[in-house]
Design a protein around this nucleic acid. Structure first.
Lengths: 182, 182
DNA sequence: CAAAATAGACCGACTGGTCTGTAAATTTTT
DNA sequence: AAAAATTTACAGACCAGTCGGTCTATTTTG
């Protein structure tokens, strides 16, 4: 794995735990064991450029996880598996890993606009992917329902992390039926 | 308004825009026009103590807003008014103001545990308040439904902010019925 | 007077970023 | 193919500025 890729991956991990401002480049450098010159060689525009790429990288990785969970399953079964992915991530990280995008998106209004756009695009990708999934399985009004399900899952993720209790995510398994049948 | 209170209020505002790490004490001091000595007189333990108080303050202020929106209205009407409060806040701040608690809670796993507890308590207060509201209006299974509604609203807030589009919040007005009737 | 509050100079640590330099690759020229 | 020139990548000392925090001195209040 080359230097550039390791920088992006590690940044993605750190950003998830501490957000944009909480993740310093010196910390990244120390973690990857790479000198400063290398970072600014690969990312001439510095921190913003690196984090933007890390967001896209992390978002894509997450989408793959969700895609694997959904693949080849019925609607409810697939969505349940997707929620299980979130639950496992919270537990595995001792509730330190936030949703990789939300961790930055919440402060995005005060950061470089391109970073907000990157968050926006990742969210849109997730939602489109889910929308297609629902549609292929004959769910009516798939576009709107996928938006609603994402809002629910996102909120449950945030609350479960803050409370250090996965009950909010588990609750989604119960209430998703009401949305799908609406 | 005395110094201490102004410090807490301003910190609450700044934290909402930039989170825990993004809000520096020098910036707070400059904004409130107060010298450092005053801050450390009122908050001997420094930044953590100040932010912890700002979280509680901001959370309470938000609860009052929601309470006013709900008061004396029927279930759906009240919840719609509550969503309107969120929408107005996003628009008024040009999508810069996040949910005051989520802005910190997402990184809380890496900060002082007391700050996470403060976030936790505010969230619990909101949810209990909503739970009572639903119960008084004869909604069945009020506890669980209030948890679900909060998860939905929280997620819609995050997504609407990230996309700079209030459609996710508006969508809640449509789907809340499915939850209430479940 | 004493206590509370204000005031800000000052501290070491750390911030993101620049700069100069070296060592391999890769390409160009002969 | 060998030599020369150029580009890519790695390396880290160094910079001004800011971080959160301490400390002492002064002013205000009761």
């Amino acid at each position: 794995m080359d230097t550039r890729e390791r920088l992006v991956e590690t940044t993605s991990k750190l950003v998830r735990k501490k957000g944009y401002f909480g993740t310093g480049i010196n910390e990244i450098l120390k973690s990857v064991e790479v000198p400063k010159g290398s970072l600014y060689h690969h990312f001439p525009k510095g921190k913003d450029e690196l984090i933007q790429e890390a967001i896209l990288y992390g978002g894509e990785a997450q989408m793959l996880k969700y895609g694997n969970a959904l693949r080849g399953k019925g609607v409810e079964e697939g969505l349940n598996a997707m929620i299980d992915v979130m639950i496992e991530e919270l537990l595995a990280s001792n509730f330190e890993d936030a949703c990789p995008i939300a961790a930055v998106a919440l402060a995005s209004g005060t950061i470089d606009e391109r970073i907000r756009k990157a968050c926006d695009n990742v969210f849109k990708g997730w939602q489109n992917s889910l929308s297609g999934y629902l549609e292929r399985r004959g769910v009516s009004n798939a576009e709107e329902k996928s938006q609603q399900l994402y809002a629910m899952f996102e909120g449950a993720y945030v609350l479960s992390q803050a409370h250090q209790d996965v009950k909010y995510l588990l609750l989604q398994k119960k209430f998703m039926k009401s949305i799908l049948e609406a």
